[in-house]
Amino acid sequence: MIENRPWLTGFSHLVLILGVLVVALPVWVAIVASTDPANAFGVGHIPLWFGDQAFANWHQVLIGKEGQASQVLRMTLNSLIMALGITFGKIAISLFSAYAIVFFRFPFRGLEFWVIFFTLMLPVEVRIVPTYEVVANLNLLNSYTGLTLPLIASATATFLFRQCFMSIPGELVEAARIDGAGPIRFFFDILLPMSRTNIAALFVILFIYGWNQYLWPLIVTTDDAYYTLVMSVKRMLSVPDGDIEWNKVMVSTLLAMIPPVLVVIGMQKLFVKGLVDAEK
């Protein structure tokens, strides 16, 4: 669509700018509040400009105050382990299941695919009680395995890889067979490199999904050695008495936002390529 109407251009920009402002405002508030004194947030108005406590707040959260070491690094590490575990686990298991479904003929192949597809309707939140019981019976509470394993099975990723594999021409598969590539060689030499961009795109989505997990870690961990960053934000709000330290809450919030942002920025190019590219 090519139009040349100045007021329309101006209007579109206005709408977009307003949208950006609406989205950015909470982030702005978080950044500002992380520099204010503890009480600035709770007195009836929201501060919109920087305070003078930035260094003190961040120092306290990152390093800890006297006599009490900070938990933040530990929690960031936990979050990272969980997010990466979920991401790589999901990608690996989806790649294998999609490979089986697309390239191998076995009985009930179609049914199996639909059963996998059906689990889309059963996210963790729905099956949380039975899943908890299974994890508890396996003695996996308070462990990284318990944090990641129940979240790894993924219908979405399997479906995506299935579509991606199905678009690979049959002749290519046959050429590989004639070249003497067995199923495993074909998977690692041909399929994996050809799905590189799709894997990258999925990595971004799944990393954010894993990183933002809240309910599951909250339930499955009782030992603070396994607390994740995201759930800690909530824990900081439920102090038994006294004031909530909003400034520190905001520092933690910002910290929790950084890794997903880095992943998105770092993999932006591959991400877009993976979703729109037709290299095959």
Partner: peptide
């Protein structure tokens, strides 16, 4: 044997 396919079937990433 060796086969040449109609659409050539070259490995696109190699």
């Amino acid at each position: 044997i060796a086969m040449v396919f109609q659409n050539y079937a070259l490995y696109p990433h190699m």
